[in-house]
């Protein structure tokens, strides 16, 4: 029994690690088409099926000079767009970025986004490894 203790301990540790960690999946990434120099907005869903929370710390794409997490708010009838900072993704929860709320703004697009195009977007998290998601450029009505 004593001999097996370290193995038990290791098993316990391993299960602890698994239980405490986030399990992040990014899906349903889409954008509307853009024109000229205008920035684009990407909407997506971050699903955390794990037992630990994680934080979205940033986004990158080869398709734009900058990708920033933005929060849109309507305060007293005025639409305000601001940098959102890090986004908390609680355990067993999901963050759905939808029009009129949180989105990933793409500034300095290499080319305007056109309906039918797709491109890769990398999301950076504090705990999980980088997640790459394919963004589909939909019709202007979006989803």
């Amino acid at each position: 029994m004593i001999r097996h203790l370290p193995i038990f301990a290791l098993l316990l540790l391993a299960s602890c690690g698994e239980q405490g960690g986030p399990d992040i999946k990014v899906s349903n990434a889409w954008s509307r088409p853009t024109i000229g120099q205008a920035p684009g907005a990407v909407y997506l869903t971050i699903d955390n099926k794990g037992d630990g929370a994680d934080r979205l710390t940033g986004a990158f794409t080869d398709h734009a000079a900058m990708a920033m997490v933005h929060q849109n708010e309507v305060v007293n009838g005025i639409a305000k767009m601001r940098m959102a900072g890090e986004i908390n993704v609680p355990a067993h929860d999901k963050i759905e970025m939808k029009p009129g709320g949180t989105h990933i703004m793409l500034e300095g697009l290499r080319a305007p986004l056109r309906t039918g195009d797709d491109f890769d977007l990398v999301l950076k998290f504090r705990g999980s490894k980088d997640q790459t998601v394919k963004v589909n450029v939909l019709k202007p009505e979006g989803q």
Binding site: Q37, N72, H103
Partner: peptide, 11 residues
Amino acid sequence: HCPDVCPTTLA
């Protein structure tokens, strides 16, 4: 240059 609210409203 409004990527979210303006296209959402017009769409």
